[in-house]
Design a protein around this nucleic acid. Structure first.
Lengths: 150, 150
DNA sequence: TATTGTTATACTCTATAACTATA
DNA sequence: TATAGTTATAGAGTATAACAATA
């Protein structure tokens, strides 16, 4: 595939777009995301469902609202996720004695088991993806960016 | 907002999710993306439109298919983008003598001007966002990830 | 046969508005 | 009033299938 017209004024070896970390990040994140989707698919999990399950195994009893705040998504987006997890017997919705509106989300044994397996697969995936890279430094940089809204 | 049930078995100070670079990257990228959208909005540009315009200023005469390959998106997704850019007089579609199917996409003076202004705003934004960080190292790491599909 | 640009379409992700039942 | 969970909905973003014109 050659360029149809040679209108380029220079052999611009450093395209402007590539000078933006935001652009490179988007491209890198696309790779990670589609890769990760492939890793999670065999478990019947998508990224948000996986994140929710892991969070609930870490902190059993969270409500939907707490979970939404933790994962930084809006509450309505968790409805389908929680329903999916419950329908598959991975979590239970437990009545909260002190607040009849709320439902504590608790992982079942099956949920904890699936979570452990999926975590292992994701860990293996990241080990491959970040081999040779300073993952700690990368994560630290990402955290700085994350807390720099505005 | 206190946890409704104290079912947590431990004061798990390092949540499993946070151990994944993919998760941190998603969160960091969300910040960058919404931030960047705010920077580009005053110019009437969205991320993909901005990327397309910058690419065309860098390499005038690219066809839609070339642009799609360059930006790693499917061709149909550029139709609306190119139409938008042309309707606003930022690019022109020039007939290609050697291939009557293709149309060379060429930025106009207005397009180059808007591109320069938007590039400046995005650069300023990134300077703020990455202040104190080793942007070069971060970009290098992102590139390694990007080329590590599968 | 293959490719360009295009249409139509669909799916994912995620946000807002508004309802209900509680608080 | 405010909050928890939910419904309905909408808007990005992006992908696939298929078509007409051209190669």
């Amino acid at each position: 595939m050659a360029a149809p017209l040679s209108l380029s004024r220079q052999a611009s070896s450093a395209p402007s777009l590539e000078r933006f970390a935001g652009y490179r990040m988007k491209r890198a994140f696309n790779v990670i995301q589609s890769d990760l989707a492939g890793v999670l698919a065999p478990f019947g999990l998508r990224m948000l469902t996986f994140s929710a399950l892991v969070s609930l195994v870490d902190e059993p009893g969270l409500t939907s609202a707490h979970l939404a705040a933790l994962l930084d998504v809006e509450r309505p987006n968790l409805v389908a996720v929680v329903e999916d997890l419950e329908r598959r017997g991975l979590i239970r919705r437990v009545a909260v004695p002190t607040d009849r509106r709320a439902r504590a989300l608790c992982p079942t044994k099956a949920g904890r088991d699936l979570c452990r397996e999926a975590l292992g697969a994701v860990q293996a995936h990241e080990a491959r993806l970040f081999a040779g890279l300073d993952k700690g430094a990368l994560m630290a940089a990402l955290d700085v960016i994350r807390t720099r809204q505005g």
